[in-house]
C-alpha cells in the first residue's frame, strides 16, 4: 500500500489532493468522478463519509452529504467504495470524518476495517488534539497515520503539541471558518505555512477555501506540501447533477488546471 511518505518524497511539487463525499451524488457516479480525478493526476484522496450534522462544513458540502445519504451511502458501503478505488489504483486515502460515526462503529474496529480497505489516515473534524488520546493509540495499532488540523488562530504552543502528534500531514486550514469556495485566500496563510515548515518536517497540506488554480499555486509557492480542494469540485457535482458526463469532464478539467498551476 502506497504511503504518504512515498508520495511526498517522490514529488518535486505540491501534492494535488481533491476532496469528495463518497456516494455523492450516488455510488456509481461518485466512483467514476473519483477515477477521473485520479486520471487527472490526484496524488492523494481526501474522502468524507456523509454525516447528518457536519458543523465544520459550509452549504456546498452539507448538500453533498445530504445527496450521499439519500443515495444510500453509509459506513459499510463506504468500506466497499474504498476497496473499489484501491482496485483501480493504489493511491493514498485520508478520511475526513465526524466523530459520532466512528464512535458508533467502535473506534478500534473502524480504524482496523478502514485501514484494511486501503485508508492511510483518519482526520476527525470534531476531535481536537486535547482528546487526541481517544484515537491516537488505536489509529497507530491499526497502522494508520494521524492527521490533525491547525487553524490561523491556533496558538504557537498548541501548534507544537499538534505537530508532535501528527505522523501523516498537518491539515492546515487557510481561513477562519467552515469549508466553502472563496474568491480570495486569507492573507495570513503564507505566514502560517512558513511557521509550520520551520517547526516540523511533517508535510503541511492546505485546505478550506482553495477554489482557483492561482490559490493553489500561491500556497504551493509558500511551501505547502499539498493542496486540498473540496467545495469547488463538490460544487461542480451540484452544478451538473443532470449531466453526469459533463460533471466528470468539468471536474477533471479543473483538476488538470490546478495541476498545471502547481507544477509551474
Amino acid at each position: 500500500m502506497k504511503t504518504y511518505k512515498q508520495v511526498f518524497s517522490e514529488l518535486d511539487r505540491a501534492a494535488l489532493i481533491p476532496f469528495f463525499v463518497v456516494g455523492d451524488p450516488d455510488f456509481d457516479t461518485s466512483l467514476e468522478i473519483i477515477k477521473g480525478a485520479i486520471d487527472a493526476g490526484a496524488d492523494i484522496l481526501e474522502l468524507g463519509i456523509p454525516f447528518s450534522d457536519p458543523i465544520a462544513d459550509g452549504p456546498t458540502i452539507q448538500k453533498a452529504d445530504i445527496r450521499a445519504i439519500k443515495s444510500g451511502m453509509n459506513v459499510a458501503r463506504a468500506l466497499e467504495f474504498i476497496k473499489q478505488i484501491k482496485n483501480y489504483k493504489d493511491i493514498p486515502i485520508g478520511l475526513l470524518m465526524y466523530y459520532n460515526l466512528i464512535y458508533q462503529y467502535g473506534t478500534g474496529k473502524f480504524f482496523e476495517d478502514f485501514h484494511k480497505a486501503g485508508v492511510n489516515s483518519v482526520l476527525v473534524a470534531d476531535l481536537s488534539i486535547d482528546d487526541g488520546d481517544e484515537i491516537i493509540g488505536s489509529a497507530a495499532s491499526a497502522g494508520l497515520d494521524t492527521v490533525f488540523m491547525v487553524t490561523p488562530n491556533t496558538a504557537p504552543d498548541r501548534i507544537k503539541l499538534i505537530v508532535s502528534k501528527t505522523t501523516g500531514f498537518i491539515y492546515t486550514v487557510s481561513v477562519l471558518g467552515v469549508t466553502g469556495s472563496r474568491d480570495n485566500l486569507s492573507g495570513t496563510i503564507e505566514d502560517l505555512i512558513g511557521d509550520l515548515k520551520k517547526l516540523t518536517s511533517v508535510p503541511v497540506c492546505v485546505g478550506f477555501g482553495i477554489s482557483k488554480p492561482e490559490h493553489a499555486a500561491a500556497v504551493a509557492r509558500a511551501g505547502a506540501d499539498g493542496v486540498i480542494i473540496g467545495s469547488k469540485i463538490v460544487g461542480l457535482i451540484e452544478k451538473n447533477l443532470n449531466n453526469k458526463t459533463e460533471m466528470i469532464v468539468e471536474i477533471s478539467a479543473f483538476l488538470t488546471q490546478v495541476m498545471d498551476a502547481i507544477s509551474r
Binding site: I55, A56, Y99, A125, D126, L127, S128, I129, D130, D131, F148, M149, V150, T151, N153, T154, A155, R158, I162, V173, L176, G177
Partner: peptide, 21 residues
C-alpha cells in the same frame, strides 16, 4: 482548556480546532 468539562464520561468539547481558542 483548563478543565475537561466532564460529567462522568459525558460532556467534553468535541469541536473543530478553530473553535478551541
Amino acid at each position: 482548556m483548563k478543565y475537561k468539562g466532564r460529567f462522568g464520561d459525558y460532556g467534553g468539547f468535541y469541536v473543530p480546532e478553530v473553535l478551541i481558542p
